[in-house]
């Protein structure tokens, strides 16, 4: 009798821990049976193409969350990158555009990282501040207008596809592999886990915790820029408000996947599932004819739910 108690608790914990995933998987199965258009190849390809762009940033967001922080500025870096990339494509060509945009995103990320890691400012206010400032920058540069490009190479890359799958999912796949390798097999990757797991112990063990916190924001800056460029490749335009919901989406996907906001565990392979689940959910909602504001509502609700569950699970594990 006494022995069964911890087991029961484990089962309950498991259910709570995976409640959102279980619910979503159930929902997908339900959709697959009830909605014809859902399980067609075209729709599946669509989901893959759609989710890859934000997925690229979600990989890096996962690393930030593993280090025990989070970042809101990613969405603005994304929007800014679509603008900068398109502008550069129109002026200095796509190669230069790629380098400049990536460098700029990295620099923004490094700025966040410096303030959080070195000055020790709270991440939420740092990334909130840069989020506003970078968004402002994007509006200023474009005078709030969308910018189009007719760069031929860009159009050609945009057209490329294999069995309906564009180039973007391949970039995403590359990012997934790169990040899984980085987190698993490099010293820096492991240092990030240690830093997020227990900052003091990691510091005492000789790990450069300041660098770890710095590098995660820098990487997210770069990844958000890359994601922005991929969006640019897809729609051949840049506009400041693009990607406004990116940070929210990435944080939600990461936590649904099973990486805890507390830091120190989880991984990119989990986030891939989280991204996929969210993508399928919103695709299904669209197919069901759920409107934009209702989707937004659900988006916020999902975030609140997963955060609450994450905290509850953490509390149960402590006890």
């Amino acid at each position: 009798m006494i022995k069964s108690l911890p087991n029961k608790k484990k089962i309950v914990t498991f259910i709570i821990e995976n409640a959102v995933s279980v619910f979503l998987v159930g929902f997908i199965i339900f959709m697959a049976f009830t909605k014809r258009s859902f399980s067609t190849w075209d729709n599946i390809v669509n989901i893959i193409n759609e989710s890859s762009i934000y997925g690229i940033a979600a990989c890096a967001m996962t690393v930030v969350i593993i280090s025990g922080e989070f970042d809101l500025a990613a969405s603005s870096i994304f929007g800014w990158s679509t603008v900068l990339f398109t502008l550069c494509c129109n002026s200095i060509g796509i190669g230069g555009a790629f380098i400049v945009t990536l460098a700029c995103g990295t620099l923004f990320g490094a700025f966040n990282g410096y303030l959080v890691a070195k000055i020790k400012m709270p991440a939420f206010v740092v990334t909130l501040g840069t989020m506003i400032a970078i968004k402002g920058l994007a509006y200023v540069v474009t005078k709030a207008q969308p910018i189009n490009t007719d760069n031929k190479i860009l159009w050609a890359i945009g057209k490329f596809q294999i069995a309906g799958i564009s180039i973007i999912p391949f970039v995403y796949l590359g990012m997934i592999i790169l990040f899984i390798w980085f987190l698993r097999y490099t010293k820096f990757g492991r240092d990030i886990y240690a830093t997020g797991g227990n900052y003091e112990v990691a510091r005492l063990s000789g790990i450069n915790v300041v660098f770890s916190k710095f590098i995660v924001f820098t990487m997210l800056g770069a990844a958000a820029a890359l994601a922005g460029m991929m969006y640019g490749v897809r729609i051949k335009a840049g506009w400041a408000p693009y990607g406004q919901d990116l940070s929210l989406y990435c944080i939600t996907a990461t936590i649904i996947g099973g990486t805890s906001l507390l830091g120190g565990n989880g991984g990119v392979h989990k986030t891939v599932i989280g991204v996929l689940l969210l993508a399928v959910l919103f695709n299904a909602l669209t197919l069901l004819g759920v409107g934009g504001s209702m989707q937004k509502f659900i988006r916020g609700l999902v975030l609140i739910t997963v955060i609450m569950l994450d905290a509850v699970v953490a509390k149960r594990q402590r006890e």
């Binding site: 939420f124 916020g300 955060i307 905290a311």
Partner: peptide, 18 residues
């Protein structure tokens, strides 16, 4: 503060939608 920030961030989206 950190948790409050992120929970109310979610709430911001929900209420904006409402």
């Amino acid at each position: 503060t950190g948790e409050a920030f992120i929970v109310t961030y979610g709430m911001q989206v929900v209420v904006a939608a409402i």
